[in-house]
Design a protein around this nucleic acid. Structure first.
Length: 580
RNA sequence: GGCCCCGUAGCUCAGGGGAUAGAGCGACCGCCUCCUAAGCGGUAGGUCAUAGGUUCGAAUCCUAUCGGGGCCGCCA
């Protein structure tokens, strides 16, 4: 149920009728005709730009089209007035029965209100987090995790089949470093003093891994050459790190559907197969790259290497897939991994990456374009930095200084709900300030409390009504006499609710979950404003002496609550029953 | 040098072809015998970085410039 879509259909029908009657030329493209909320509520309930969009192709004056369309539309009982305004807008007022029907519809649909099928069941793979398995997740990872999870939920709500996926970078040099670091902790567990050399991971989180290694191997690996233990300890430590990361994600409320391993691509011929596939398309060759302009790396020397012709698919330069020692670059398993995602049959791939990976976007798109024959789009969502603030000043994270803030630190202090909501109050490509003081303060500076407070107030109204003996379950409310909802302020609240399905589609199309957060804030604001109107005008309070009147007004409140609850659900935030 | 992102109120940010550009914070003035005042109403505050262009119409699209950030083979 989408009132804006319904009224747009009505407008399209009216335009078709005008075409049949000869008032408009045949064959006009109506795709740009929109029905939207007007900027100013005084203009009406909805506005359409039809006359302005069609004026040029129809060869008619905008106002002439608008007036003819107005005449056509006012014949429909759902439209009570249609006024031409400004450069050719047509402002529409809707019969109050539509708003009452909307409220009833929300109560009937419950959490499905606003669900859309714009995804048409297309399958989407959302890869996110993909933190290196070398330690606990830190605040920098949190934003990507929350964004990816909320985007996945949003796309699901908009009719896609979504797979949440984590790519484990367990094949590169950093897991060898992890193994050597764990080995020192293993020596420590055996009573020797660890030698945490420069470049190893010094974190305490590896101490229990060392102890677990002692429990498994005793002292049998002490003083053995690295070649004897590296592979085993690497696997052991990587698994321990992944267990820790899964637990971190669970704290945030994030659950992955699939964990893919980089290591599993090595030694199985899958990298070779992906490269050979590209070679078969004449996209792999031996050649030399020009030196980058500007400041040269000190050790730059020209050399021939194995290159991927990514320029054939929109990249700026071709990209090496092999290092000088003949081993694969990190890019090679990425190629194989994306090949794997393509062959699993997804209709759309989304990679959520840190903004520092911006330089890799074009080559990844080139890979997916080449390996899918242009069939599968890859969208890369870059997540900008989170700037931490504490005590009114920027907070620098440093492993060495011990000011390393982990995901667990944040969630245990601020709570998952606050963390998630705050992380979603910015566009993904804008930097975000995360202020510990404000987030911990739990004041009105903290938008999640504002939204949750609105929900809690609604729940409070329903509890009070029930204590007064008024039936207020959803089924009863849906059957209430909603014709009593006729005050302009009440219609205004319904108008905001009506925007929800439209907002979901806009947010899903743009892959912008932050729009959900902003909308919920606005809806909460409208609820709070309406609540206070009850102070001035007791007839606008939700709970009234008369049961039937109460039920109609509570139905409106409950409809707001349903949308808040549904929206928070997409963001992964719990709607509060009461504020404590 | 090249590529990507950003520049909107004092501050933090929404809006991304359409009407008089919005919100929060901060400042100032008001609202609780009344469903939670963790709330609400009002006032003040703007050359939408700059200059061109496209368009009936540009904060929004294009180009250039300035400013901030990120990235640029053998790290992932």
């Amino acid at each position: 149920m989408n009132l804006f879509a319904d009224i747009r259909s009505l407008v399209i029908e009216a335009l078709d009728a005008m075409t049949l009657a000869g008032a408009l030329p045949a064959g006009l493209d109506l795709g740009a005709v929109a029905v939207e909320p007007p900027r100013d509520a005084a203009h009406g309930d909805m506005a359409t730009n039809a006359a302005m969009v069609l004026a040029r192709p129809a060869g008619l004056a905008p106002r002439a089209i608008a007036e003819a369309l107005a005449a056509q539309l006012t014949g429909d009982p759902r439209i009570t007035s249609a006024e031409v305004a400004g450069p050719g807008f047509l402002n529409l007022r809707l019969a109050s029965g539509l708003w009452q029907g909307l409220v009833r519809g929300v109560l009937t649909a419950g959490g499905d209100f606003g669900r859309s099928d714009i995804g048409r069941g297309r399958s989407v793979n959302v890869e996110f987090v993909s933190a290196n398995p070398t330690g606990p997740m830190h605040v920098g990872h949190v934003r990507g995790a929350v964004f990816g999870d909320a985007l996945a939920a949003l796309l699901d709500f908009a009719g896609h089949r979504v797979t949440r996926e984590y790519y484990i970078n367990d094949g590169g040099g950093q897991v060898d470093v992890l193994a050597r670091s764990a080995y020192e902790r293993y020596r420590e567990a055996n009573g020797l003093s660890p030698e945490i050399a420069e470049g190893l991971y010094p974190g305490d989180y590896l101490i229990p891994v060392g102890e677990a290694l002692k429990a498994k191997y005793g002292d049998s690996l002490i003083d053995r050459p690295e070649s004897d233990w590296l592979a085993d300890i690497r696997d052991f430590a990587t698994e321990a790190m992944m267990a820790m990361i899964r637990a971190d994600l669970a704290l945030l409320g994030v659950t992955m559907d699939v964990y893919s391993s980089e290591k599993a691509l090595y030694g199985t011929g899958r990298i070779e197969a992906a490269i050979e596939t590209l070679r078969g398309m004449d996209l792999i060759y031996e050649g030399t790259l020009e030196a980058p302009k500007g400041k040269l790396p000190e050790d730059w020397e020209e050399r021939e290497q194995t290159l991927f012709r990514s320029t054939a698919h929109g990249d700026d330069v071709d990209r090496p897939v092999k290092k000088s020692d003949g081993s694969w670059t990190y890019f090679a398993p990425d190629i194989a991994y994306h090949y794997d995602k393509v062959t699993r049959g997804f209709d759309l791939l989304i990679d959520v990456l840190g903004a520092d990976h911006g330089g890799y976007v074009k080559r990844l798109k080139a890979v997916v374009s080449a390996l899918s024959g242009g069939r599968v789009p890859l969208e890369v969502k870059l997540i900008q930095l989170v700037k931490l603030w504490k005590n009114g000043e920027p907070f620098k994270m440093s492993k060495r200084a011990g000011t390393f803030v982990t995901l667990r630190d944040v969630v245990e202090q601020a709570g998952a709900d606050v963390t998630r909501f705050v992380m979603l109050t910015r566009k993904n490509d804008a930097a975000l300030d995360f202020d510990f003081d404000k987030v911990l303060e739990q004041s009105r500076d903290n938008p999640v409390f504002y939204v949750q407070y609105a929900h809690a107030r609604i729940r409070s109204v329903i509890r009070r009504a029930q204590e007064a003996g008024i039936a207020a379950d959803d089924a009863t409310l849906a059957g209430a006499d909603l014709a009593q909802l006729s005050h302009e302020a009440e219609i205004g609240l319904a108008r905001k609710i009506a925007e929800w399905p439209r907002l979901v589609e806009i947010a899903a199309r743009g892959q912008e979950p932050h729009r959900i957060a902003f909308y919920l804030y606005e809806l909460a604001s409208d609820l709070h404003a309406h609540w206070n109107r009850g102070n001035e005008d007791a007839s606008l309070r939700f709970v009234q002496d008369d049961h039937a009147t109460s039920q109609a007004k509570i139905a409106l409140a409950r409809a707001v609550g349903v949308v808040i609850s549904t929206g928070l659900g997409i963001l992964g935030v719990t709607p509060a029953e009461e504020m404590r």
